[in-house]
Design a binder for these strands. Structure first.
Lengths: 142, 142
DNA sequence: CCTTGACCTTCCAGTAGGTGGAAGGACTAT
DNA sequence: ATAGTCCTTCCACCTACTGGAAGGTCAAGG
Protein backbone atom coordinates (compact mmCIF):
# COMPACT_ATOMS: atom_id res chain seq x y z
CA UNK A 1 0.00 0.00 0.00
CA UNK A 2 1.33 3.44 -0.92
CA UNK A 3 1.57 6.27 1.57
CA UNK A 4 -1.29 8.23 -0.01
CA UNK A 5 -3.60 5.32 0.41
CA UNK A 6 -2.54 4.74 4.02
CA UNK A 7 -2.88 8.44 4.68
CA UNK A 8 -6.45 8.41 3.45
CA UNK A 9 -7.39 5.30 5.38
CA UNK A 10 -5.73 6.29 8.62
CA UNK A 11 -6.68 9.95 8.45
CA UNK A 12 -3.07 10.96 9.07
CA UNK A 13 -1.25 13.34 6.70
CA UNK A 14 1.46 11.65 4.63
CA UNK A 15 3.97 14.04 6.21
CA UNK A 16 3.04 12.80 9.63
CA UNK A 17 3.36 9.18 8.58
CA UNK A 18 6.86 9.83 7.24
CA UNK A 19 7.66 11.57 10.49
CA UNK A 20 6.39 8.59 12.47
CA UNK A 21 8.65 6.34 10.43
CA UNK A 22 11.50 8.74 11.11
CA UNK A 23 11.09 8.43 14.85
CA UNK A 24 10.64 4.69 14.63
CA UNK A 25 6.93 4.24 15.29
CA UNK A 26 6.37 2.30 12.06
CA UNK A 27 8.76 0.45 9.78
CA UNK A 28 7.18 0.05 6.35
CA UNK A 29 9.18 -1.93 3.81
CA UNK A 30 10.35 -0.39 0.55
CA UNK A 31 9.62 -1.29 -3.02
CA UNK A 32 12.30 -1.44 -5.68
CA UNK A 33 11.45 2.08 -6.75
CA UNK A 34 12.04 3.46 -3.27
CA UNK A 35 8.35 3.90 -2.46
CA UNK A 36 7.22 2.87 1.01
CA UNK A 37 5.08 -0.25 1.03
CA UNK A 38 2.74 -0.42 4.02
CA UNK A 39 1.32 -3.69 5.29
CA UNK A 40 -2.17 -3.86 6.79
CA UNK A 41 -0.56 -4.09 10.24
CA UNK A 42 1.17 -0.77 9.57
CA UNK A 43 -2.16 0.78 8.72
CA UNK A 44 -3.61 -0.56 11.98
CA UNK A 45 -0.67 0.83 13.92
CA UNK A 46 -1.06 4.23 12.31
CA UNK A 47 -4.78 4.35 12.97
CA UNK A 48 -4.04 3.36 16.56
CA UNK A 49 -1.49 6.15 16.80
CA UNK A 50 -3.93 8.64 15.36
CA UNK A 51 -6.52 7.78 17.97
CA UNK A 52 -4.02 7.77 20.83
CA UNK A 53 -2.72 11.18 19.71
CA UNK A 54 -6.26 12.49 19.44
CA UNK A 55 -6.69 11.52 23.09
CA UNK A 56 -3.71 13.71 23.83
CA UNK A 57 -1.16 11.02 24.62
CA UNK A 58 2.38 12.17 23.96
CA UNK A 59 4.47 10.52 21.30
CA UNK A 60 6.47 8.70 23.96
CA UNK A 61 3.29 7.46 25.61
CA UNK A 62 2.10 6.36 22.18
CA UNK A 63 5.33 4.45 21.73
CA UNK A 64 4.68 2.60 24.98
CA UNK A 65 1.01 2.06 24.19
CA UNK A 66 2.00 0.69 20.81
CA UNK A 67 4.31 -1.84 22.39
CA UNK A 68 1.52 -2.85 24.75
CA UNK A 69 -0.83 -3.00 21.78
CA UNK A 70 1.46 -5.54 20.18
CA UNK A 71 2.04 -7.47 23.39
CA UNK A 72 -0.45 -10.29 23.81
CA UNK A 73 0.87 -10.86 27.33
CA UNK A 74 0.36 -7.28 28.49
CA UNK A 75 -1.32 -6.39 31.75
CA UNK A 76 -4.23 -4.02 31.50
CA UNK A 77 -2.72 -2.42 34.62
CA UNK A 78 0.14 -1.08 32.51
CA UNK A 79 -2.25 0.50 30.05
CA UNK A 80 -4.37 1.91 32.83
CA UNK A 81 -1.37 3.46 34.55
CA UNK A 82 -0.48 5.42 31.44
CA UNK A 83 -4.03 6.57 30.88
CA UNK A 84 -4.39 7.54 34.52
CA UNK A 85 -1.29 9.69 34.64
CA UNK A 86 -2.36 11.31 31.39
CA UNK A 87 -5.80 11.97 32.82
CA UNK A 88 -4.23 13.52 35.89
CA UNK A 89 -2.15 15.77 33.67
CA UNK A 90 -5.22 16.84 31.72
CA UNK A 91 -7.12 17.57 34.91
CA UNK A 92 -4.26 19.63 36.33
CA UNK A 93 -4.20 21.62 33.13
CA UNK A 94 -7.94 22.19 33.33
CA UNK A 95 -7.64 23.57 36.84
CA UNK A 96 -4.80 25.78 35.80
CA UNK A 97 -6.78 27.15 32.88
CA UNK A 98 -9.87 27.64 35.00
CA UNK A 99 -7.92 29.79 37.43
CA UNK A 100 -6.57 31.71 34.48
CA UNK A 101 -10.02 32.11 32.99
CA UNK A 102 -11.40 33.46 36.26
CA UNK A 103 -8.63 36.02 36.52
CA UNK A 104 -9.00 37.12 32.93
CA UNK A 105 -12.77 37.24 33.15
CA UNK A 106 -12.58 39.45 36.21
CA UNK A 107 -10.20 41.81 34.48
CA UNK A 108 -12.26 41.91 31.31
CA UNK A 109 -15.46 42.59 33.22
CA UNK A 110 -13.89 45.43 35.12
CA UNK A 111 -12.49 47.11 32.04
CA UNK A 112 -14.75 49.78 30.56
CA UNK A 113 -13.47 49.19 27.08
CA UNK A 114 -13.93 52.77 25.94
CA UNK A 115 -11.55 55.26 24.37
CA UNK A 116 -10.01 56.38 27.63
CA UNK A 117 -6.64 54.98 28.69
CA UNK A 118 -7.64 53.93 32.23
CA UNK A 119 -7.69 50.17 32.31
CA UNK A 120 -7.81 47.66 35.16
CA UNK A 121 -6.16 45.08 32.94
CA UNK A 122 -3.18 47.33 32.43
CA UNK A 123 -3.19 48.22 36.10
CA UNK A 124 -3.00 44.56 36.95
CA UNK A 125 -0.18 43.88 34.53
CA UNK A 126 1.68 46.89 35.87
CA UNK A 127 1.19 45.94 39.49
CA UNK A 128 4.51 45.45 41.22
CA UNK A 129 3.25 42.82 43.64
CA UNK A 130 2.48 39.68 41.72
CA UNK A 131 1.35 38.19 45.00
CA UNK A 132 -0.02 34.82 46.02
CA UNK A 133 -3.37 35.39 44.29
CA UNK A 134 -1.87 34.70 40.92
CA UNK A 135 1.02 32.34 40.50
CA UNK A 136 0.45 30.53 37.26
CA UNK A 137 3.70 28.64 36.74
CA UNK A 138 4.75 31.10 34.04
CA UNK A 139 4.44 28.24 31.60
CA UNK A 140 0.72 28.48 31.11
CA UNK A 141 0.75 27.52 27.49
CA UNK A 142 -2.21 26.68 25.33
CA UNK B 1 21.78 47.38 36.09
CA UNK B 2 23.29 44.04 35.10
CA UNK B 3 21.22 41.19 33.73
CA UNK B 4 21.57 39.10 36.88
CA UNK B 5 20.13 41.86 38.94
CA UNK B 6 17.24 42.44 36.54
CA UNK B 7 16.63 38.73 36.42
CA UNK B 8 16.32 38.58 40.17
CA UNK B 9 14.05 41.61 40.39
CA UNK B 10 11.80 40.64 37.49
CA UNK B 11 11.70 36.95 38.29
CA UNK B 12 12.63 36.13 34.71
CA UNK B 13 15.64 33.91 33.92
CA UNK B 14 18.56 35.76 32.37
CA UNK B 15 18.26 33.48 29.35
CA UNK B 16 14.70 34.60 28.84
CA UNK B 17 15.64 38.24 29.12
CA UNK B 18 18.30 37.81 26.46
CA UNK B 19 15.74 36.04 24.33
CA UNK B 20 13.32 38.92 24.79
CA UNK B 21 16.00 41.31 23.66
CA UNK B 22 16.64 39.05 20.69
CA UNK B 23 13.03 39.28 19.54
CA UNK B 24 12.94 43.00 20.20
CA UNK B 25 10.80 43.25 23.31
CA UNK B 26 13.44 45.21 25.23
CA UNK B 27 16.44 47.22 24.07
CA UNK B 28 18.88 47.61 26.91
CA UNK B 29 21.96 49.73 26.24
CA UNK B 30 25.46 48.34 26.42
CA UNK B 31 28.40 49.27 28.58
CA UNK B 32 31.92 49.60 27.26
CA UNK B 33 32.68 46.05 28.33
CA UNK B 34 29.77 44.65 26.28
CA UNK B 35 27.56 44.01 29.31
CA UNK B 36 23.90 44.91 28.96
CA UNK B 37 22.89 47.90 31.05
CA UNK B 38 19.21 47.88 31.96
CA UNK B 39 17.35 51.06 32.86
CA UNK B 40 14.55 51.02 35.43
CA UNK B 41 12.06 51.27 32.57
CA UNK B 42 13.48 48.08 31.12
CA UNK B 43 12.97 46.36 34.44
CA UNK B 44 9.35 47.56 34.49
CA UNK B 45 8.83 46.30 30.95
CA UNK B 46 10.26 42.90 31.82
CA UNK B 47 8.14 42.58 34.93
CA UNK B 48 5.13 43.55 32.81
CA UNK B 49 6.06 40.90 30.28
CA UNK B 50 6.47 38.31 33.00
CA UNK B 51 2.98 39.00 34.30
CA UNK B 52 1.41 39.09 30.85
CA UNK B 53 3.09 35.78 29.98
CA UNK B 54 1.93 34.27 33.27
CA UNK B 55 -1.60 35.16 32.18
CA UNK B 56 -0.98 33.12 29.09
CA UNK B 57 -0.77 35.94 26.55
CA UNK B 58 1.32 34.99 23.53
CA UNK B 59 4.54 36.80 22.79
CA UNK B 60 2.86 38.68 19.96
CA UNK B 61 0.02 39.73 22.24
CA UNK B 62 2.62 40.80 24.78
CA UNK B 63 4.28 42.90 22.12
CA UNK B 64 1.00 44.65 21.44
CA UNK B 65 0.19 44.99 25.13
CA UNK B 66 3.62 46.47 25.68
CA UNK B 67 3.04 49.10 23.03
CA UNK B 68 -0.30 49.93 24.64
CA UNK B 69 1.45 50.00 28.01
CA UNK B 70 3.76 52.68 26.70
CA UNK B 71 1.01 54.59 24.93
CA UNK B 72 -0.50 57.27 27.14
CA UNK B 73 -3.20 57.86 24.53
CA UNK B 74 -4.33 54.24 24.36
CA UNK B 75 -7.96 53.21 24.51
CA UNK B 76 -8.85 50.69 27.17
CA UNK B 77 -11.01 49.11 24.44
CA UNK B 78 -7.88 47.96 22.64
CA UNK B 79 -6.55 46.30 25.76
CA UNK B 80 -9.91 44.74 26.50
CA UNK B 81 -10.20 43.31 23.00
CA UNK B 82 -6.92 41.45 23.37
CA UNK B 83 -7.83 40.13 26.79
CA UNK B 84 -11.25 39.07 25.59
CA UNK B 85 -10.02 37.09 22.64
CA UNK B 86 -7.43 35.47 24.86
CA UNK B 87 -10.10 34.61 27.39
CA UNK B 88 -12.22 33.07 24.65
CA UNK B 89 -9.26 30.97 23.59
CA UNK B 90 -8.66 29.79 27.13
CA UNK B 91 -12.32 28.88 27.53
CA UNK B 92 -12.34 26.93 24.28
CA UNK B 93 -9.30 25.04 25.45
CA UNK B 94 -10.97 24.26 28.76
CA UNK B 95 -13.99 22.78 27.00
CA UNK B 96 -11.77 20.73 24.76
CA UNK B 97 -9.83 19.38 27.72
CA UNK B 98 -13.01 18.67 29.66
CA UNK B 99 -14.32 16.52 26.83
CA UNK B 100 -10.98 14.76 26.75
CA UNK B 101 -11.01 14.27 30.50
CA UNK B 102 -14.48 12.74 30.39
CA UNK B 103 -13.47 10.29 27.70
CA UNK B 104 -10.28 9.31 29.50
CA UNK B 105 -12.01 9.02 32.85
CA UNK B 106 -14.61 6.71 31.38
CA UNK B 107 -11.93 4.50 29.86
CA UNK B 108 -9.88 4.45 33.05
CA UNK B 109 -12.89 3.58 35.17
CA UNK B 110 -13.84 0.72 32.90
CA UNK B 111 -10.36 -0.78 32.88
CA UNK B 112 -9.79 -3.46 35.51
CA UNK B 113 -6.11 -2.69 35.78
CA UNK B 114 -5.10 -6.23 36.61
CA UNK B 115 -2.55 -8.56 35.05
CA UNK B 116 -4.84 -9.76 32.28
CA UNK B 117 -4.50 -8.28 28.80
CA UNK B 118 -8.18 -7.41 28.28
CA UNK B 119 -8.47 -3.65 28.34
CA UNK B 120 -11.27 -1.29 27.33
CA UNK B 121 -8.70 1.44 26.78
CA UNK B 122 -6.89 -0.68 24.22
CA UNK B 123 -10.20 -1.72 22.72
CA UNK B 124 -11.09 1.92 22.26
CA UNK B 125 -7.77 2.78 20.69
CA UNK B 126 -8.06 -0.21 18.41
CA UNK B 127 -11.63 0.55 17.40
CA UNK B 128 -11.85 1.13 13.67
CA UNK B 129 -14.74 3.56 13.90
CA UNK B 130 -13.50 6.73 15.52
CA UNK B 131 -17.03 8.00 15.25
CA UNK B 132 -18.76 11.25 16.12
CA UNK B 133 -18.47 10.68 19.87
CA UNK B 134 -14.83 11.61 19.84
CA UNK B 135 -13.43 14.11 17.45
CA UNK B 136 -10.76 16.02 19.30
CA UNK B 137 -9.07 18.11 16.62
CA UNK B 138 -6.05 15.79 16.67
CA UNK B 139 -4.13 18.75 17.98
CA UNK B 140 -5.16 18.38 21.58
CA UNK B 141 -1.87 19.48 23.02
CA UNK B 142 -1.11 20.29 26.62
C1' DC C 1 7.69 8.18 -27.94
C1' DC C 2 6.51 12.19 -25.40
C1' DT C 3 4.11 14.81 -22.30
C1' DT C 4 1.12 15.86 -18.53
C1' DG C 5 -0.29 15.25 -13.96
C1' DA C 6 -0.52 12.82 -9.87
C1' DC C 7 2.17 10.55 -6.86
C1' DC C 8 6.38 9.51 -4.53
C1' DT C 9 11.25 10.58 -2.60
C1' DT C 10 14.67 13.35 0.39
C1' DC C 11 16.20 17.31 2.75
C1' DC C 12 15.99 21.83 4.87
C1' DA C 13 13.67 25.23 7.49
C1' DG C 14 10.23 26.99 10.49
C1' DT C 15 6.62 26.96 14.18
C1' DA C 16 6.39 28.87 20.18
C1' DG C 17 8.95 30.02 23.72
C1' DG C 18 12.28 29.22 25.56
C1' DT C 19 16.35 25.99 27.96
C1' DG C 20 21.04 23.82 28.32
C1' DG C 21 25.65 23.98 27.57
C1' DA C 22 30.22 25.18 25.66
C1' DA C 23 33.88 28.50 24.99
C1' DG C 24 35.69 32.51 26.38
C1' DG C 25 36.03 37.52 28.26
C1' DA C 26 35.37 40.59 32.65
C1' DC C 27 35.24 41.69 37.38
C1' DT C 28 36.13 41.15 42.43
C1' DA C 29 38.59 39.51 46.37
C1' DT C 30 42.37 37.46 48.26
C1' DA D 1 48.29 35.52 40.25
C1' DT D 2 44.34 33.02 40.88
C1' DA D 3 39.81 31.51 42.10
C1' DG D 4 35.09 32.23 41.63
C1' DT D 5 31.36 34.56 39.83
C1' DC D 6 29.39 37.15 36.37
C1' DC D 7 28.87 38.33 31.68
C1' DT D 8 29.13 37.47 26.45
C1' DT D 9 27.88 34.79 22.01
C1' DC D 10 26.53 30.86 19.55
C1' DC D 11 24.64 26.44 18.67
C1' DA D 12 21.69 22.74 19.70
C1' DC D 13 17.54 20.82 21.66
C1' DC D 14 12.64 20.44 23.20
C1' DT D 15 7.17 18.88 20.95
C1' DA D 16 4.98 17.28 17.06
C1' DC D 17 4.64 18.32 13.26
C1' DT D 18 4.09 21.35 8.64
C1' DG D 19 5.59 23.74 4.32
C1' DG D 20 8.18 23.85 0.45
C1' DA D 21 11.84 22.93 -2.95
C1' DA D 22 14.08 19.79 -6.10
C1' DG D 23 13.71 15.78 -8.29
C1' DG D 24 12.38 10.59 -9.43
C1' DT D 25 8.19 7.36 -10.92
C1' DC D 26 4.09 5.84 -12.90
C1' DA D 27 -0.27 5.59 -15.67
C1' DA D 28 -3.00 7.62 -19.28
C1' DG D 29 -3.63 10.15 -23.51
C1' DG D 30 -2.10 11.92 -28.04
Amino acid sequence: MNIGNVSEQSGLPAKTIRYYEDIGLVQPSRRENGYRDFAVQDLHKLAFLGRARSLGFSIEECRTLLSLYEDRERSSADVKAIAQSHLARVDRKIEELQALSATLRDLVVRCHGDNRPDCPIMDDLTRSDLAETRKHPAGTTL
